[in-house]
Design a protein around this nucleic acid. Structure first.
Lengths: 246, 246
DNA sequence: GCAAAAGTGTTCCGACTACACCCATGC
DNA sequence: GCATGGGTGTAGTCGGAACACTTTTGC
């Protein structure tokens, strides 16, 4: 890690800060029935910002890794098997948390943020009867505690980037899915500012990372659609290569 | 920031971790005379890892922001005016720093890493006579203290990405530069796995963000080259748009 | 003149766009 | 049949890759 600055003998510089480290997560999900992009918010119970909505978060415990901490919050709020999780950014300026003022000796509160995309269908919210917890459609998000709006914005940008250039969509789609399912996922997250369905089809198939299971599925009227499966082996050699999914 | 998990009254969960927060920086520079990509390393003076090379870093002081801390280390090591700096990633697993074991009560050491690209010509190393400090060509980097090799790898990846998709090259080139200067910068960082000079020229000029000053410069034999200047106004509307510089 | 470096132009080809069109199902 | 959604094909266009060629300097 780090060392002090290199003044030789007596260190008469200002003292080191002491930190509590929090992990806050921007947890996204796509409701494919209503084509809405959702973010998970929780109502704060304690000061500061008691009664306001915020991103789910926690303070890091002894012996716990940052990512482990992120997974813990996630599992405390929702039951979900399939997800993508990655670190976002660390916010750590002084005075970003009102609790810093209260404490006599200057403890700082730092937030390592994560962003997650979870499979909506299986994501079951864990209501403990006391806490408010809810999926909010992006665009209907209320004002948030701390600097959480900033974190959310940052997470949304990252989500769109990841979706375009990484196969995270397949972490959140069911094992087998139609190409239309995939297309809908992309449009709800990215907006429909890209290729029409027909061109999307051909391009994504040309990548060669989807395998047709041959199984057909019928959703009401219309011709039944083929179910596809993400082919991890075929994708492996393409990893780290610049790929555009949308 | 964050709250605890939502158990109601008594918190009998494992206690919170206490953190020292360090900032470690991957500072790159391009020696355009020798076409080498360099990274700044310092020799550690104190335990742990005393006598080993490491990334320049420091522990965050009271009242100091993370970015401020990164700038402080930078200014303690080199004198440089023009640079690009951005946060990289936060490494914070338990047991990543040997000092955690020494302390009786489990203080954790967390590293928020930054990456910087500085203008080589004006970067003057501040030798304090005691500390080793040196530019190492990438590929000749010795084994590093802590998990600094991992941070360096991460920084290198980010550097290449940023160079391809952001105009950070112009933060580090002189005010006026030839297209060949620009091309050399790209090739030394990215390798010459992209367009030849002639295609690079036309593509970068078509972006419309470089303005020809009309001034010619002659470097030995050959036809004199035009000096160009980065046009920040012309670039402004393109910001946030996906742009490929290489 | 000749070598060296800067700068221009041309040809080829693959990829993306915008459609029009065919196919298989429910009712 | 016909509406509905799935799936295929094609013509036009844009942009990058490769490379030949011209221009302007030093010597």
């Amino acid at each position: 890690m780090s060392e002090r600055s290199q003044r030789k003998p007596t260190d008469l510089v200002s003292p080191l800060a002491e930190f509590k480290v929090g992990v806050d997560s921007v947890i996204f999900s796509v409701d494919s029935d209503q084509n809405r992009l959702l973010v998970l918010l929780v109502m704060r119970q304690d000061a500061p910002f008691s009664g306001e909505w915020s991103l789910p978060g926690t303070l890091v415990r002894q012996g716990e890794s940052l990512e482990g901490s992120a997974y813990r919050v996630l599992s405390e709020k929702i039951r979900v098997e399939n997800l993508y999780l990655e670190q976002l950014y660390t916010f750590g300026g002084p005075n970003r948390d009102p609790r810093e003022a209260e404490t006599s000796y200057g403890v700082r509160y730092l937030s390592v943020s994560y962003f997650a995309l979870v499979r909506f269908a299986e994501a079951e919210l864990i209501a403990d009867g006391v806490n408010g917890i809810a999926w909010y459609p992006l665009g209907q998000v209320p004002s948030l505690a701390f600097d959480h709006q900033q974190i959310l914005d940052y997470g949304y940008r990252r989500l769109r980037n990841k979706l375009e250039y990484s196969p995270i969509a397949f972490d959140v789609l069911p094992e087998m899915f139609t190409l239309n399912d995939l297309y809908q996922l992309y449009t709800t997250v990215l907006g429909d500012h890209f290729a029409d369905y027909s061109n999307f089809r051909t391009r994504i198939l040309k990548l060669g990372i989807l395998s047709d299971t041959g199984i057909k599925t019928s959703r009401g009227a219309g011709r039944p659609a083929s179910l596809y499966r993400f082919d991890a082996e075929a994708f492996a050699p393409l990893k780290n290569k610049p790929l555009v999914f949308a």
